[in-house]
């Protein structure tokens, strides 16, 4: 044994392999079962994928670093369930690339914020949080209202996720840009296709209050309004355990 270690140290390469071996085995043993974890994730056949507009909104959420202050993971603790709603299930983030569970709550959890407030509230709040909640310390995001949403590459966004296992269909990818426009313009000819491709329950509204323009505000509010709404598996689970 000591001779072995002595030789190990003598050759630097051996030493390298030892460090890799020792450290990687721990991580590997722990992580390996997670590659098959899909087997343990709850099933939610009714769960839909994010629409192109919601995907764009999610990317704005990522770009602005919202995850630094808002978690999207309700833990299995009584006070959290009472404050935010049914605890989060693994299945609810099965299409999240990356996950946005977060690690800090400078602001409240957002896992079930969808439908909790009106679109107008969100728009006013994002433009100036302190106009709605005087004590808030959230930054102002007024420029989202002034910035046109770039929809040109949304098809590529969906296609990349499809390659990585998110079940987008060919027609969803082909119509990505039109669907993004349609979801925020209920009176336009593009609006109908959104419900066809993503389910009739999908929100189709002028999220920022201006039907003619497609802004980054539209996308972000559309995303916020769908949080916790992609499947009702969590509500069912809570009801089942309640019995």
């Amino acid at each position: 044994m000591p001779n072995f270690h002595r030789k190990l140290e003598r050759s630097a390469i051996g030493f390298v392999l030892a460090i890799i071996g020792v450290s990687a085995i721990g991580g590997f043993v722990e992580i390996a079962p997670l590659f098959t974890i899909q087997e343990t994730v709850e099933k939610a056949p009714d769960m839909r994928v994010y629409t192109p507009l919601e995907t764009a909104g999610r990317n704005i959420y990522i770009r602005e670093g919202c995850y630094a202050c808002h978690s999207q993971m309700i833990r299995t603790l009584r006070d959290e369930v009472e404050r935010y709603g049914p605890y989060s299930l693994a299945v609810e983030s099965q299409y999240d690339k990356p996950m946005l569970w977060g690690s800090k709550r400078t602001g409240p959890d957002l896992a079930r914020v969808g439908g909790k407030y009106s679109d107008q509230w969100h728009v006013a709040h994002l433009i100036n949080p302190r106009a709605v909640v005087p004590q808030s310390v959230m930054p102002k995001y007024g420029w989202l209202m002034r910035t046109e949403l770039n929809t040109a590459d949304l098809g590529q966004h969906l296609a990349a996720q499809r390659k990585l296992g998110v079940p987008y269909t060919e027609t969803q990818i082909a119509n990505a840009s039109a669907d993004a426009y349609g979801q925020a313009s209920p009176d336009s000819p593009y609006a109908g296709g959104v419900g066809e491709r993503y389910g009739e329950a999908t929100n189709v509204r002028a999220f920022d209050g201006e039907p003619g323009r497609l802004t980054e505000m539209d996308a972000l509010v559309a995303y916020l309004q769908v949080l916790g709404k992609l499947t009702d598996a969590a509500h069912k689970q809570t009801a089942a355990t309640g019995k």
Binding site: G27, I31, F35, S93, K97, Q156
Partner: peptide, 26 residues
């Protein structure tokens, strides 16, 4: 991660959801 195209800075991670959480905090 997989970039959406070679002309774009945006990419999507190969992991999703709970798996991504585990890999990220590992």
């Amino acid at each position: 991660a997989l970039p959406i195209s070679l002309g774009s800075a945006k990419s999507y991670t190969v992991y999703s959801g709970v798996q991504d959480a585990m890999v990220q905090w590992w």
